[in-house]
Design a protein around this nucleic acid. Structure first.
Lengths: 188, 188
DNA sequence: AGAATTAAGTCAATATGACTGACGTAAATT
DNA sequence: AATTTACGTCAGTCATATTGACTTAATTCT
């Protein structure tokens, strides 16, 4: 255990930190709305890290990474999605998707079928195995979300949903609402 | 514009998707608590992506990436932090940090000073430039957070803060609460 | 005082996920 | 018939991360 990396029982941080210029980097106001969202930045960072950490462990067994997870997730949620649309969702390039997708197809996780009307299309579906894996990963994340909602007042999930939606670039929201489907009533 | 990548005004997704096995991947319950957190997964994905997107654009001008941002952020928030503690926060290896840190030091963004009591330590501080950059990036993210809180009922930020904290692995929470300082009252 | 531990840095090799830009092919649309 | 679209592919590059081993200096433990 020479190389330190994961230290759960670590002593408190910043013990020796001096206080020359600390705490209020953004101005001289006395702890107003700015400090408010300051810690949200960090909470979001840590929360998201742990949120993606759960699936990562499972994926490692398959020698897949986070990129595979994202593709698998959106294909499983949108069976028959076109490659082009998937690119639009993920905002990556064709080449990046290409490699990941090929690996998933080779591993029997995702299946490509020719479009019914348009034979250029390679519509994407999860196989049974792929679907099972997707469910696995999703339920890990769901469990974490459910745990996180425990003890919060009624209606908190609605607030959180609206918050997250409003975090998204306004131009992208319509697409995402459409993608998520079950959220139409959130449109304001 | 042959290669598609960033498509803000794109037509709706999943037009041609068929409905063979869709919507309810995780079981046969009639739209209960599972579907509830299902869309949270996706909202979190998109929200976090846009959240990190703002600083990315600024960092690109400096030829820095997200890794630099994370280091800069936590050094700025914890002046005089030790390398070891920073590794613990970021959960990356010494080697990964090393390169990024060196670039930041070379660019005059971060400064290393010898520990007062322990001369092995290289305590980390932002320079004036570095601090300015950190503030710049932070305020972008703050603005997004503030926009996201608009229109939500009173006390929503408290709910969101508690939600995010509970998303974090329980073992990691004490450290993070300590790190974030202004959140002690959130401890339940 | 000597041994063990800690803080930090470094070397080498490797993997993943992303990028740009150009090109090809088949099918559909105009 | 020409153009556009959907998809795939080649070649090269970059950023961020990894593992494992090793060194140096300083501190702490026995």
């Amino acid at each position: 255990m020479t190389d330190v990396n994961f230290k759960p029982d670590q002593p408190p941080l910043g013990r020796g930190a001096d206080k020359s210029r600390t705490q209020q980097p953004e101005g001289s106001d006395t702890d107003g709305a700015d400090t408010l969202s300051y810690d949200l930045i960090e909470l979001l960072f840590f929360a998201y890290r742990d949120f993606t950490g759960d699936p990562d462990d499972v994926l490692a067994k398959y020698e897949f990474g986070r990129a595979h997870h994202r593709v698998l997730h959106f294909v499983d949620r949108n069976p028959g999605i076109m490659v082009t649309d998937l690119l639009g969702i993920l905002r990556i390039t064709k080449q990046s998707l290409g490699r990941v997708l090929k690996q998933l197809v080779d591993a029997g996780i995702i299946e490509q079928r020719e479009g019914h009307h348009d034979r250029r299309q390679r519509l994407l579906y999860t196989t049974e195995r792929g679907h099972a894996l997707a469910v696995d990963l999703t339920s890990l994340q769901q469990k974490r979300l459910e745990r996180a909602l425990i003890g919060l007042p009624d209606g908190s999930d609605e607030i959180i949903r609206r918050f997250l939606l409003q975090m998204i670039d306004p131009e992208a929201r319509p697409q995402i609402l459409q993608l998520i489907r079950s959220l139409y009533d959130l449109k304001d």
